[in-house]
């Protein structure tokens, strides 16, 4: 399993060198690399957008506090988009299938078939940003749920090509984890988002003393 993770990680890292945004569906024939290092999980997701509503890709996710490492494929579907003169709203459905080590701190340890389902929604203007998602992770009889919400404001409104800066706060609720592991069931992470051109960088620090360092690149 560790070898599989290493190979997949190396593959994703190698692909970054190819000619190269944060949404799960980009524009058709576009690639997106998402590397997220958040309060309670680290993950890499590389996806390719096949049509304006669909993307498929690879996902490696390490939920350290839940003792869960997932490697597999991910399908992302834009359910509905609302394009308004000064705003955009989206709802997404995501599903992942693959294998996972770890068992959400349930004292079992073997590589098993695993998967997850996630519903996500966002709405943004050039000044305000809101997003939320709910996920269920499953691994052969064991399950864990997670919910996140994010609110952001841009201190200045930048035009195309300029550096965009956002001040954000993220709340993360998790259930069905072992209370003895020391993690919070609810964490809050203030963060700063920068993006320019094809690249997005987020830096923050969570209430459970974990750094947040996210990077998204579209190509």
């Amino acid at each position: 399993m560790k070898k599989l993770c290493a190979v997949a990680l190396a593959g994703v890292m190698a692909l970054q060198a190819a000619p190269a945004g944060a949404r799960p569906v980009s524009y058709p024939q576009g690639w997106t690399l998402m590397q997220m290092n958040e309060a309670e999980a680290n993950w890499l997701h590389l996806h390719y957008t096949t049509d304006p509503r669909t993307s498929i890709g690879l996902k490696i996710e390490n939920q350290g506090y839940a003792d869960h490492v997932f490697v597999g494929g991910q399908y992302n579907r834009l359910l509905k988009r609302w394009n308004a003169p000064n705003s955009q709203g989206n709802t997404y459905f995501k599903v992942g299938l693959g294998v996972a080590d770890g068992d959400f701190n349930q004292a079992l340890d073997a590589t098993k078939a695993a998967g997850f389902v996630r519903f996500a929604a966002d709405w943004e203007t050039r000044r305000w940003f809101t997003a939320a998602n709910a996920s269920v992770y499953a691994r052969e009889g064991k399950a864990m749920t997670s919910q996140k919400a994010r609110l952001g404001v841009a201190p200045y409104v930048a035009d195309f090509g300029a550096l965009h800066t956002w001040l954000m706060v993220e709340g993360n609720w998790t259930q069905n984890r072992d209370a003895d592991q020391g993690q919070d069931a609810f964490t809050v992470t203030p963060l700063v988002r920068f993006f320019k051109g094809n690249s997005l960088l987020e830096v923050g620090y969570s209430s459970n003393d974990e750094p947040l360092l996210n990077f998204v690149y579209r190509f």
Binding site: A22, F160, R218
Partner: peptide, 16 residues
């Protein structure tokens, strides 16, 4: 264009 609120949106539109 409606819905064009961010740099990623503009990048997508440009490329297409």
């Amino acid at each position: 264009v409606n819905g064009m609120v961010c740099d990623f949106c503009a990048q997508s539109l440009t490329k297409v």
